[in-house]
Simulated scan of single mutants.
Amino acid sequence: MVNTIKAERRESSRRSDLSALRNGGYIPAVVYGYQLENVPVAVSERELTMTLREVGRNGVIRLEVEGKPVNVILNDYQLDVLKGDFRHADFLAIDMNEELEAEVNITLLGDEDAPGVKEGGTINQPLWTVNVKAKPSDVPETLEVDVSGLQVGETLTIGDVKASWGVEVTDEDDAVLVTITAPRTQEEMDSLDEEPAETTAEPEVIGEKEGSENE
């Protein structure tokens, strides 16, 4: 499903005008890519937020730019550090028949049921996203990794699970997705609680050299 957002073309990039847009509930943005030059636009923050909730971060959005529909994805964005509001958005115009590369989140399944976890092990997830190549309509919102069978000391790499994803992954097969490390021994826990011994050194006193005279 492709959701539609109306985009108003903007002519000014002055800070005062951009601030006025944001105060009015709009996001300064730019559209570029397939069969399109860079076009500065403004979109409703409310509409964009609602659309992303429906189609996901990698979902296809149809922008109406001056009455012309353009298929895009949200290629990049900037958020207000304090408020979390959108400050700017970059939309990439795409050809629905051409493959593109996208970053997809990884979701772990069965982590509480893993034997290694039940034995006190800790799940470590070095990678939270992977890069895939697919047509826009085939890019998944998330990729699932079943860890319910992992024992302590076992590891899953991209090569171990990518066949189940049904999409081309461009990252290396030996990249580690998840591993379960052994629980700490009592000796290790005790060593963490021990404070490092304090060492006090006598300050070095630098005196006058023998035979020196005050000038």
Score class of each variant (00 low, 15 high):
residue 140 P to L: 05
residue 90 D to V: 05
residue 101 E to G: 14
residue 79 L to G: 07
residue 108 L to S: 08
residue 170 T to A: 06
residue 151 Q to S: 12
residue 156 L to A: 13
residue 150 L to W: 01
residue 100 L to C: 04
residue 86 F to M: 13
residue 137 S to K: 15
residue 173 D to I: 13
residue 93 A to D: 08
residue 141 E to M: 07
residue 100 L to R: 04
residue 131 N to G: 05
residue 143 L to R: 10
residue 134 A to C: 09
residue 101 E to R: 15
residue 84 G to F: 05
residue 124 N to K: 14
residue 166 G to H: 06
residue 89 A to G: 06
residue 101 E to M: 12
residue 138 D to P: 10
residue 157 T to L: 02
residue 170 T to K: 14
residue 114 A to E: 03
residue 143 L to M: 14
residue 117 V to S: 00
residue 126 P to K: 06
residue 150 L to D: 01
residue 80 D to Q: 04
residue 93 A to C: 14
residue 174 D to N: 09
residue 88 H to C: 00
residue 127 L to K: 00
residue 75 N to M: 10
residue 116 G to E: 02
residue 128 W to C: 07
residue 116 G to T: 03
residue 115 P to M: 11
residue 118 K to V: 02
residue 173 D to E: 15
residue 124 N to L: 11
residue 80 D to K: 04
residue 130 V to R: 01
residue 97 N to C: 03
residue 133 K to P: 12
residue 90 D to H: 07
residue 104 V to K: 13
residue 148 S to H: 10
residue 134 A to W: 00
residue 149 G to H: 02
residue 120 G to S: 12
residue 115 P to V: 08
residue 140 P to D: 07
residue 162 K to A: 13
residue 167 V to H: 02
residue 135 K to A: 13
residue 157 T to V: 04
residue 112 E to V: 14
residue 164 S to V: 01
residue 171 D to W: 05
residue 78 Q to P: 03
residue 79 L to H: 09
residue 78 Q to F: 06
residue 130 V to P: 00
residue 116 G to W: 05
residue 75 N to S: 15
residue 109 L to H: 06
residue 85 D to S: 13
residue 143 L to N: 04
residue 117 V to Y: 03
residue 167 V to Q: 01
residue 148 S to G: 11
residue 142 T to S: 14
residue 94 I to W: 12
residue 87 R to G: 11
residue 106 I to Y: 05
residue 81 V to I: 11
residue 151 Q to T: 07
residue 137 S to L: 13
residue 94 I to S: 08
residue 155 T to V: 06
residue 95 D to S: 12
residue 172 E to M: 14
residue 153 G to Q: 12
residue 95 D to W: 13
residue 85 D to H: 02
residue 156 L to H: 07
residue 166 G to K: 05
residue 101 E to W: 09
residue 145 V to L: 02
residue 75 N to C: 04
residue 148 S to L: 01
residue 114 A to C: 11
residue 77 Y to R: 12
residue 135 K to E: 14
residue 136 P to V: 03
residue 153 G to C: 11
residue 148 S to C: 09
residue 173 D to M: 15
residue 83 K to E: 08
residue 144 E to Q: 13
residue 173 D to L: 11
residue 161 V to C: 04
residue 122 T to N: 12
residue 161 V to H: 02
residue 174 D to R: 05
residue 134 A to M: 08
residue 106 I to T: 06
residue 169 V to Q: 02
residue 168 E to D: 15
residue 91 F to N: 10
residue 174 D to F: 02
residue 116 G to H: 01
residue 151 Q to F: 07
residue 169 V to E: 05
residue 161 V to S: 06
residue 149 G to D: 13
residue 98 E to Q: 14
residue 121 G to W: 10
residue 112 E to S: 14
residue 140 P to Y: 06
residue 112 E to Q: 14
residue 145 V to G: 02
residue 173 D to S: 13
residue 95 D to N: 15
residue 117 V to A: 00
residue 113 D to Q: 13
residue 105 N to W: 12
residue 149 G to R: 07
residue 139 V to M: 13
residue 112 E to D: 09
residue 95 D to T: 10
residue 103 E to H: 05
residue 95 D to Y: 12
residue 123 I to E: 04
residue 163 A to N: 15
residue 79 L to S: 08
residue 154 E to M: 09
residue 139 V to P: 08
residue 138 D to N: 15
residue 129 T to C: 10
